[in-house]
């Protein structure tokens, strides 16, 4: 699920960036620093959308670096148990398959793949129905439901299922 929230961060800026463009430098450094990171609490920071407030800089003793407290708005993505996501398959093996929904990695174990889909090893490992009409392989797009998350301080990993109504392949790369 996406959220638009305000976060705060203390930015350290090297004195060489001081000058007319200090603010711009600060903002671009902020984006470089936080976009794409993940915190267990807020999820993945997808994009910084605005600066709320930049506090007074504090010069650090001995270094000349200045610390600015920056409040910024950003879009974060946080997966939840029970959430339905659309994801792209990245890897298929006999244990199941891995998929990505944006920054989130999801593993679907083979017992959460419908029973009528069998693992086929080979050049392109895949899960296929007996009549061959549905196939899951690398780059397939699937709709899945998250049934568990593992949230660490800097990492979120999910496991999902496609063994339910309206879940499964939504776009087969071989037919496109």
């Amino acid at each position: 699920m996406f959220f638009h929230i305000v976060l705060e961060r203390n930015m350290q800026l090297h004195p060489r960036y001081f000058g007319r463009n200090l603010r711009d430098n600060l903002v671009s450094k902020l984006m470089k620093d936080v976009e794409g990171t993940c915190s267990g609490r807020h999820g993945f920071v997808v994009a910084v959308t605005g600066i709320e407030n930049i506090g007074k800089g504090l010069i650090r003793d001995g270094t000349g670096f200045v610390t600015f407290p920056v409040k910024y708005q950003c879009v974060v993505f946080r997966p939840f148990k029970g959430e339905i996501l659309e994801a792209v398959v990245t890897m298929v093996n006999k244990m199941g398959f891995f998929a990505e929904a944006g920054p989130v990695q999801i593993f679907v174990s083979n017992h959460l793949i419908p029973d009528d889909m069998e693992f086929q090893s080979g050049d392109i490992p895949n899960y296929t129905t007996s009549d061959g009409s549905v196939k899951i392989q690398k780059d397939s797009e699937v709709r899945l439901k998250i049934i568990g998350t593992r949230v660490d301080a800097t990492e979120i990993f999910c496991i999902g299922t496609i063994k339910d109504d309206f879940l499964g392949v939504i776009n087969d790369p071989t037919t496109v």
Partner: peptide, 27 residues
Amino acid sequence: ENKNTIQEYICPDCGKRYNALDALRLI
């Protein structure tokens, strides 16, 4: 049907158990 349960894995050699949430580390 054991849906929505978390798959478990076991090491036949040392007997250590894992589950699907560890999958990323296990590949």
